[in-house]
Structure formats: C-alpha cells, structure tokens
Design a protein around this nucleic acid. Structure first.
Lengths: 229, 229
DNA sequence: TAGATTGTTAATCGATTAACAATC
DNA sequence: TAGATTGTTAATCGATTAACAATC
C-alpha cells in the first residue's frame, strides 16, 4: 500500500518540469555508469542552479535523499518515471519523412519515455513504400485508419513550415491530442491539445546572439579552397 | 549617424532573448506573406503571453511601433538582425555525420543567422569521403587545420552521447568558442565557452508528461499487424 | 562526536501583468 | 473627434536563493 503515495497532485511549474527531465536523464546515465547516488550539489553543478533548488525539486517529486550520501539514482528514476508518466505506453505517428523525420525514425531512445512509433507517413508518393530503419513509409491516405486502429494520440511533426498548420488542423480533427513539432512555426491549436515545439532555428538564433556578445567579430575571412587544407 | 544608435548595451534576459528570436522568425514569415505590420496583440496571441510584455520586448530591442498600426515587420527584422548579431558571418563545423548530423547538413536555413557551415567531420572512416548535400565528409584528422584555416569558432555537435564530452574538450582546446549541442548530455565547458543544448529527449519527456496529465490512459492496445490496416 | 548532507521556511529577486498616459 | 494601438511606470506574482534546522 505504501507504493500508492500520491506525491501531491499539484501541477509542476514549467521550469521545475524541465529540471526533473534533466535529473531523469542524468540518473539514467549515472545508473549505466554504476553510480548509485548523486548529491544535490552535483546535480546543481551540472544544471548550473543553486543546490537548494535541486533539493526543493526532489521534495516536489517525492524523492527522499540520505543525509551524507545523496539521492539514489534508482529512487530518482522510479519516482520520475511514475510522476512524469513514462511507465504507460503511448502510440505515436511520424508525419513528414524528410531528412529530419528520417533521422528521428532511426532514433531508438523514445521507448524510455513509453513512446512507441507506430508508423511514418509522407505526402510525397515518391517516398511511399521506401524503408527507413524499421519503418515502411505509408501514404497519408492510410493515416486515418492507423490513428483509429492503434488509437494514436501523439504525432511527431516533421513537415515543412508551410504545411505544418494545415497538417496540424487535419490531425486534430482526427483525434491527435499531442504534437511534437519540429516545424519552425508556432502552431495554433484548440485548448487541451498539447504542443511541444522543438524549433531548432530559435536555438541557433540564441546561440549566435550569445556568441556575438562574447566574441569579437574576426576581421577577414580566408578564401582557401577546402581541398587545399 | 542615426544608424549607430546603441539600443542600450545591457544584456538581454534569457526569456526576453527567446521571445525576440520568435518575433524574428514570425516577422520573416509575415514578410514573405506580404504582411507589413504586426500588432503586439497578434504577437502576444501567438506566443501566449501578455501584449504588454511584447511591447516591453520591442522597447528593449529599440523597435518603435506606430499607434493604430503596429510594428513594421521590416523594422523588427532590421533591429533584431543587428541586435542579435545575424549580420556578421561566422564559420561552423559539424561533428558527427549520423542521421541527425546528416539532416542538419541538408538544412539550408542557417544562413539567415549568418552561419556558414564550412565542413563536416566523422570519426568513422567508412563515412569519410561520402557526400551529404553539398558537403564531403572529412576525417577528424583534418579538423584541426580546417579550424585554423577558416578561423572556425562554432561547432555543431551531433555525436553520440558517450563521445560528446571528450569531443567537446578536444574542440575547446583547438579554439572552438560556441557549441550547438545535440547530444543528450550536459556538457562541462570552461567559462566563456558558450553551449546551447538542443536536447531533444528532454523535450519529448516534457511533452509526454503534459500528455499524461491531460489524457486518461487508454485501456487495451490492439494487436492488428500494420499490413492489415 | 563532528561533519556532511538533506529538508524546509523566510527573504529576495526578477519577470510578468495591471493601470494608465501618449499618439496617430 | 473617437478609437485603436503603442509606451511606460507601478504592482503583483512566482521562482530562486539564503538561512538554518534536522539527520545520519
């Protein structure tokens, strides 16, 4: 009966959730490396936050540490797998088998979060029928029946920017509840529909800004052809 | 002389910078669609923030709006290109030509931010010599001289998680100042070295959590083979 | 025990929002 | 002019940090 403690039903603050996902990832790696305990100071150092904050996060996830030792990586994974919902399986489809979509199809790491990619689709009939990793690219015409048959509620969206919004509308109508969106546009969705934007260009923009702030612009650029290097 | 107004030298708060990058992207698209003005209300709606915040952001970037009309997309792009540092060219190398690295090499959008990918490298000699988009994959042995010749200070890191830290250390020693890191690990770097983590797994973890919070777990899963759908 | 670490409450800080003035 | 929108200062809110107690 002890296993059913509810760890508070209050919704996690966004930055807290982001840190918990990091603790989870770090704990997986630590476990693989055979490290059984991690201190709040160590985690704080990695995330560049105050160690008090780490302890507060742990408390909010119901994870208890041992004074003089730290937090058990197994405890962290257990609590976070449960709290974040990685124990249940969910089916996803991937839409848009361009180079990024293809790369994601080859990535084996989704299973850690309970995500099972069921099928991959593309509008381009030239791509249909080709294999990518363990998937056969299906035509969009099959999408509806795959969603229904496998009760798919999650879509990984790797279509071009100009197609993303209309594709999203279409998928919402067909019952998709959550989008992992790689198109560099803000999607407009009804309330209750969840969108996570993985807008890589925004990340690059921010990196470039920090780089420019920190580093003087180098004067001239050499014109040596790459072959001669 | 008017063009040299300094727009305040104060460093931008992190969330502000993230929003400015979004305004930039939205303005590019609006410009392409022939929309000349955007109101703070429109931007606020897209980003799901208060419109006052948008106006404060614009002020902090030195962008002036017109009452009754909004902000000119051209003004936004001009100011942000300058403020964020997209006008200067910078050379980058890409390390790790797996599926994700390959996908990035095919992406033409870096130029918008002044980034020019100079060369792509891989440790795996089986990959060396193959073309990816307009790039020929080079062996790591060539990396040092490319960095020196082209004065490269930015690295796009798409190596496996277990290789990321040592590769980073090596690149830092050779003069790389900024990392766009796609490996799912927190990199440890000296101060002054800039890292932007594009940790896709963390994004997925957060999406799954929100999805689980919002959606009841569906009971059974059908076992129809995909071929029959 | 002393010391290292976790746990928790109170104080601070910074980002967002509210209120309202200014402008075309 | 009236109305719509920008611009700015003050108030609020929430997240982080500081201080210190508890524990092994």
């Amino acid at each position: 009966m002890t296993e059913k403690r509810q760890t508070s039903t209050k919704t996690l603050a966004k930055p807290t959730l982001a840190r918990l996902a990091q603790y989870h990832q770090i704990s997986i790696r630590a476990g693989e490396d055979g490290r059984e305990y991690i201190s709040s100071a160590h985690l704080a150092n990695l995330l560049e936050v105050d160690e008090t904050l780490v302890r507060k996060d742990m408390a909010s996830a119901g994870i208890l540490g041992k004074p003089r030792v730290g937090y058990a990586t197994g405890d962290i994974l257990d609590a976070l797998d449960r709290l974040l919902g990685f124990r249940e399986q969910a089916n996803a489809i991937l839409i848009g088998c361009g180079s990024l979509g293809t790369a994601l199809l080859r990535y084996p790491g989704f299973a850690k979060y309970g995500l099972r990619v069921t099928a991959a689709f593309d509008n381009d009939h030239a791509k249909v029928g080709h294999r990518v990793g363990e998937f056969m690219i299906l035509p969009m015409e099959k999408c509806r029946s795959v969603i229904d048959t496998f009760r798919v509620e999650i879509a990984i969206l790797t279509v071009r920017a100009d197609a993303a919004q209309s594709m999203t509308d279409w998928l919402v109508q067909r019952g998709i509840k959550a989008f992992w969106n790689f198109a560099p546009v803000k999607l407009r969705v009804p309330p209750n529909i969840i969108v996570r934007d993985e807008n890589l260009a925004l990340g690059l923009a921010q990196l470039i800004h920090h780089y420019r702030r920190a580093t003087p612009v180098s004067p001239e650029l050499p014109l040596v052809p790459l072959e001669e290097v």
